[in-house]
Design a protein around this nucleic acid. Structure first.
Length: 584
DNA sequence: CTGGGGACGGGGCCC
DNA sequence: CGGGCCCCGTCCCCA
């Protein structure tokens, strides 16, 4: 209960988010599904795993390097390292495997480097002594921990080409089919001037207690070195009894970026990304080189045509399809590794990430309230300073926000640009209209339109009075009653695919009225806006078909704007064609 | 149910 | 490229 209580406040903030993107709102079938994010989960999970690693609890894999032993978890290692992923057979759909390696000799990775890499694996933070940078790089390359390798290269100011042929070969082998969640690259502050100190890559400061893990319990166990990691599997044959803990399913195809509801492995999703802002990984299958990262670039364009975030997989595919050679734009959209939302604007991803982590670094010195953003804090401070920089020119009212003033001004102007397409009630604010429609269960027709302000307000008023044969109160009553009985059925064909209204009395009149109102709304909106919502578009056509069939045209009054007429005419034509077909 | 204020998150622009 | 600033849309809360 306590846990729930703690998460509830965040729930209020985060649950509605998907609706804003249109994912849920227009998908009735998903109405019952609520995604409840637990921002701290990934961090806590990682923390607990790290605790387990320290105490040796549930460790089913021991890494050895030049005598030093490092107890770890196979699932964790497989999650971060392509090398282990392949070693355990958790990749390429052959995830049945999971091998049974309980000891891995990694003499080709220096103990210190291995220690750093393990720390990275369990804390999402890489603590690298400058002197050991190259060892870490080498280890990361061998183990197929791409993001770490890239980070090290960045710090060293190298390119992959700078590596020895052997290393490149090893890396290619390890990453050639890297499908993955571990391709994030920290580019942000990596070029800090102070490279003498320990460097920390990542922003998982929440679990700062794990930044400095104890020395990895080095137990001296000299063992024959294995120069080639390729030889490892054969030296440590699989043992089926280890499968359970390995749970290959958990790491199966980690990089197959989740589709929208793909159920990404939480840890995999959170872990590598949380550390970084920049080019959020394309997560495509063949992402092993920086060029690929670069090419991730302007795929954000994909988003312009839809409000539904493109899935990682899609983006990866798109990037691949787009081919190489693209350059990244400075305003490259970035995809949130947690919610997959595309974040536009340079440097905006860290800001967005705080909505998941719950981190509120900006605290009000006056009242202690914390904010996720500095600009919000500044605005908040106005409450304490009494500053209200937005005065109304018509009255003494002053406001904290410019948009509050904007809203307020609409009161003076009397403009109510937002009209309910069904009952024609007008509102000064769009959100009030939305609320109104939700309350009435108004048709789910999108009503947003260009803010032409008073024009629409006036038009709507005049138009409504001109074309309405019923007085407003009656209209509202009819409207309300219609929806209070709302059980939508098919309007004409009875296909059952889409809904229609059921009325008990005065049915025809009500239905006709419903159609008229909906058609007017449609004319306002334009059918092109319904293109993305087939069921609504279909319904609009059905409504219109029914009305025309009865030879009435309540929307016949010239629309106030040419565009509105244009849309109406276009719809008319479409309907006409359909009617012609039906008559035949 | 509506009007109004405020909070919050995203995007654009600019430095 | 990151961050500040501003605007916008949406949601919540209260009267």
């Amino acid at each position: 209960m306590d846990a729930m209580r703690h998460t509830l406040p965040r729930l209020q903030l985060t649950v509605p988010m998907p609706m804003r993107t249109g994912k849920v709102a227009m998908s009735p079938g998903e109405d019952g599904l609520i995604g409840i994010p637990f921002p701290e989960h990934s961090n806590e999970l990682l923390s607990h795993l790290n605790d387990q690693r320290r105490t040796g609890l549930l460790c089913d894999l021991t890494l050895m390097s030049r005598g030093a032993r490092y107890p770890t978890h196979r699932s964790v290692m497989a999650a971060v390292s392509l090398y282990f992923r392949r070693l355990f057979g958790g990749e390429e759909g052959g995830g049945e495997g999971g091998g049974g390696f309980s000891v891995c000799q990694l003499d080709f990775v220096a103990p210190d480097a291995l220690d750093a890499l393990l720390e990275f694996a369990y804390t999402a933070t890489l603590t690298i002594p400058s002197s050991g940078m190259r060892d870490v790089l080498r280890g990361a390359q061998f183990l197929g921990i791409q993001c770490v390798a890239d980070a090290c290269r960045d710090i060293l100011g190298e390119k992959a080409e700078g590596e020895t042929a052997e290393e490149q070969r090893a890396q290619r082998t390890a990453t050639e089919r890297m499908a993955v969640g571990d391709t994030v690259v920290e580019r942000g502050s990596r070029r800090k001037t102070d490279r003498k100190k320990m460097k920390k890559v990542g922003l998982n400061h929440i679990n700062s207690s794990f930044f400095n893990p104890p020395p990895a319990s080095p137990v001296s166990h000299p063992s024959p070195a294995s120069d080639s990691f390729r030889s490892l599997p054969s030296t440590q044959p699989p043992s089926p009894e280890h499968r359970q803990n390995g749970d290959p399913r958990a790491i199966k195809r980690p990089g197959r970026g989740p589709t929208i509801n793909g159920g990404p492995h939480p840890w995999l999703q959170e872990h590598p990304h949380i550390a970084n802002q920049p080019p959020v990984p394309p997560l495509n299958d063949k992402l092993s080189e920086e060029e690929d990262l670069e090419s991730f670039g302007d795929d954000g364009k994909l988003m312009e045509s839809t409000s539904i975030p493109t899935s990682i997989a899609d983006r990866g595919a798109a990037a691949t399809a787009a081919g190489a050679g693209r350059k990244r734009k400075s305003q490259t959209p970035q995809q949130c590794p947690v919610c997959q939302k595309i974040i536009h604007g340079a440097g905006k991803l860290p800001r967005h990430m705080r909505t998941h982590t719950g981190e509120k670094p900006f605290q009000c010195s006056a009242c202690g309230v914390r904010f996720t953003r500095n600009d919000k804090l500044k605005i908040h401070m106005r409450k304490h300073t009494g500053e209200r920089p937005y005065p109304c020119p018509h009255c003494p009212a002053r406001f904290l926000h410019s948009y509050d003033l904007k809203n307020h001004l609409s009161l003076h102007s009397g403009a109510r640009p937002f009209e309910c397409p069904l009952c024609h009630k007008a509102f000064a604010r769009e959100d009030h209209l939305q609320r109104h429609r939700k309350g009435h269960s108004c048709l789910e027709l999108r009503t947003r339109r260009p803010r032409h302000g008073a024009e629409l307000g006036e038009d709507d008023g005049g138009e409504a009075s001109g074309r309405e044969q019923v007085n407003p109160l009656e209209a509202l009553q009819a409207h309300s009653s219609a929806f209070s009985h709302r059980s939508l059925l098919e309007a004409g064909s009875g296909s059952g695919a889409s809904p229609q209204l059921i009325f008990e009395g005065d049915v025809e009149r009500e239905v006709e009225r419903e159609r008229s109102l909906a058609l007017q709304a449609l004319a306002h909106i334009g059918h092109h806006r319904l293109a993305g919502f087939p069921e609504l578009f279909l319904r609009s056509l059905e409504l219109r078909t029914g009305r025309d069939a009865e030879g009435e045209d309540p929307g016949g009054t010239p629309s106030p704007t040419a565009q509105r007429d244009q849309w109406a005419d276009e719809i008319e034509e479409e309907i006409g064609e359909e009617e012609a077909e039906e008559e035949e």
